[in-house]
Computed example of a mutant assay.
Amino acid sequence: MLEYKADFIIEYNEIQKGNLKRNDVDWSQSKIIFVSPSFTDFQKQSSNFKDLAIELWEIKQFENEIVVINPIKNLNQHQV
């Protein structure tokens, strides 16, 4: 996405019927979010790279349309 900002903006504008410009986006806040019912230990460890903005979220669906979404804690993040 960061290497193809113009393509990203075009795609966004076509889908959203908008008029977003490259300078309207704070690209420093970009991150990758993976959502899955489960992750392997390898996937969890891969999200711990210091300079990569990656988040893992587990999602589970239960009876009666109950959905639970839990973040997988990054080991490099400091707990507050």
Rank of each mutant, 00 (worst) to 15 (best):
Q77Y: 15
E65C: 14
E58A: 01
E58H: 00
F8G: 01
I33D: 03
M1A: 12
E63P: 02
Q43K: 03
E55P: 01
Y12G: 07
G18A: 12
E63D: 15
V80E: 13
D41S: 09
Q43T: 08
N19H: 14
G18Q: 04
Q79V: 15
N23E: 09
Q16R: 15
N13W: 04
D7P: 06
H78A: 13
F49M: 14
E14D: 15
V80C: 10
D24G: 04
V68M: 06
W27Q: 02
E14K: 15
L75Y: 10
I33S: 04
K31A: 06
D41P: 03
F62W: 14
K50S: 11
E11G: 11
L52S: 13
S30W: 05
K5G: 03
H78G: 09
F62G: 06
N76V: 12
E55D: 14
N13A: 05
M1Y: 10
D24V: 02
N48E: 06
E55G: 04
T40D: 03
S47E: 01
D41T: 15
F39P: 00
V35E: 04
D7N: 13
P71Y: 02
A6P: 06
D24H: 05
K50M: 09
Q43L: 02
K50P: 07
N76C: 11
S46M: 07
V80I: 12
K50I: 11
L56G: 00
P71E: 05
S38L: 05
N64H: 05
K17W: 10
V80Y: 15
S46L: 08
K5W: 04
N19V: 10
Q77P: 11
I33W: 03
Q29E: 13
Q61S: 08
V67H: 06
I15L: 15
S47A: 09
F42L: 10
N64S: 08
N13S: 05
I54T: 02
M1W: 10
N74Y: 03
L20I: 11
Q43F: 01
F8S: 03
K60D: 05
D26N: 08
N19E: 11
P71L: 11
I33H: 01
A53C: 15
N70S: 08
N76G: 13
F49Y: 07
A53V: 14
S36H: 07
E58R: 01
K50Q: 14
Y12W: 08
K17Y: 09
E14A: 09
L2M: 09
V67A: 15
T40P: 00
V68S: 07
I33P: 00
N74R: 13
Q43A: 07
K60E: 14
F8K: 02
F49W: 12
E55W: 02
D51N: 07
I15T: 13
K21R: 08
L52C: 15
S38I: 05
S46Y: 04
Q43P: 00
F62H: 09
Q45F: 05
I32Q: 09
D26W: 04
